[in-house]
Simulated scan of single mutants.
Amino acid sequence: MTILVTGGAGYIGSHMTLELRDAGEKLVVLDDLSTGFRSAVPADVPMIVGDFGDDELVRDILVYNQIDSIIHFAAKIVVPESVADPLGYYLNNTAKARSLLANAVQTGVKRFIFSSTAAVYGDPQSNPVTEDAVLAPVSPYGRSKLMVEWMLEDASRAHGLDYVVLRYFNVAGADPLGRSGQSTPNATHLIKVAAQAALGLRPKLQVFGTDYATPDGTCVRDYIQVNDLARAHLDALRHLRSGGASLVCNCGYGHGFSVLEVIEMVKRVSGVDFPVELAGRRPGDPAAIVAANERIRAAFGWTPRYDDLEAIVRQALDWERRLVEQPPV
């Protein structure tokens, strides 16, 4: 049984690659290295540089490696960018995912685990938000992911493809062993950006919106540590292998922190009072979104190990320092 990990050289995908390798799984990584790095993939894990929308390449990989499961991470993920370039997001996240699904069905892949997003909920009416809440994405990014969820549901019904959709909340932190982390220089993740500001790698940190209907006026998010998220995928794979039903699950801790609370934590852990600039809202940002996670806990027995904002921030800072000393390639 071999697993194809698309986007396996990226931030979350590289942690998944490590999780699978540590578990003794046989895997192959496909990544176009547009935002990922070859050095993020262990030398003993086969990696192919290419586009997951390349039908001929993907079919060859699936057949030659006898792939029976796909864990699909490869995607564009920046909400404001999706507002400016919706067609680019629908091409990469939706149209190419349709091609990947078609190739999976045609070559007899049995299981598909999809990296979705809390952005499919839009601006929820209440928190924590459950998987059965109204789906009303407010950005092309969220819509592009929701379309893939629909395709998976239909493909499963028509072709017997078993799947798990994991709706991520805000992913943060780095591998506690220092093997991987968020390496993209221009990433927009709050904790990474704040860590860069604390280390002098950015002149300041901007806060987008201070007039939201939240306790301090800034957006509230549920921050999940990246290794906990990777382990949720392995739990999902084991669930499907054991005959479990196809499922949609939130991936979050069930509580949130505001932007200002996160900034204060980064300042405290780093010991640096870096400049913060207050700015207007960004398009596509909901005021608050926090995961209800009872389903994933019950279905997979998933239990977080790193539900600690201070520890997550410390991991992010340590990884940024490592990147300064040894830039990724």
Score class of each variant (00 low, 15 high):
residue 151 M to H: 03
residue 128 P to R: 05
residue 140 P to L: 11
residue 53 G to I: 14
residue 113 I to M: 08
residue 93 N to F: 01
residue 112 F to I: 00
residue 109 V to S: 00
residue 92 N to F: 05
residue 156 S to V: 10
residue 58 V to R: 10
residue 56 E to R: 07
residue 52 F to S: 11
residue 106 Q to L: 12
residue 46 P to V: 01
residue 115 S to T: 11
residue 89 Y to N: 05
residue 62 L to C: 05
residue 121 Y to Q: 11
residue 144 S to C: 15
residue 107 T to A: 06
residue 48 I to G: 06
residue 76 K to L: 10
residue 59 R to H: 09
residue 134 V to F: 06
residue 141 Y to C: 07
residue 95 A to Q: 06
residue 142 G to M: 02
residue 122 G to E: 02
residue 56 E to A: 13
residue 68 D to K: 15
residue 159 H to E: 10
residue 50 G to I: 04
residue 81 E to W: 02
residue 144 S to D: 13
residue 114 F to V: 04
residue 120 V to Y: 07
residue 132 D to E: 13
residue 137 P to K: 06
residue 124 P to I: 03
residue 86 P to A: 13
residue 154 D to Q: 14
residue 122 G to V: 05
residue 128 P to W: 15
residue 84 A to I: 07
residue 52 F to Q: 11
residue 78 V to I: 04
residue 105 V to W: 01
residue 70 I to Q: 14
residue 71 I to Y: 04
residue 67 I to C: 05
residue 97 A to S: 15
residue 140 P to N: 08
residue 120 V to C: 10
residue 89 Y to K: 09
residue 158 A to N: 05
residue 53 G to H: 12
residue 128 P to D: 09
residue 48 I to R: 13
residue 116 S to W: 01
residue 73 F to Y: 13
residue 58 V to H: 05
residue 52 F to N: 06
residue 153 E to Q: 15
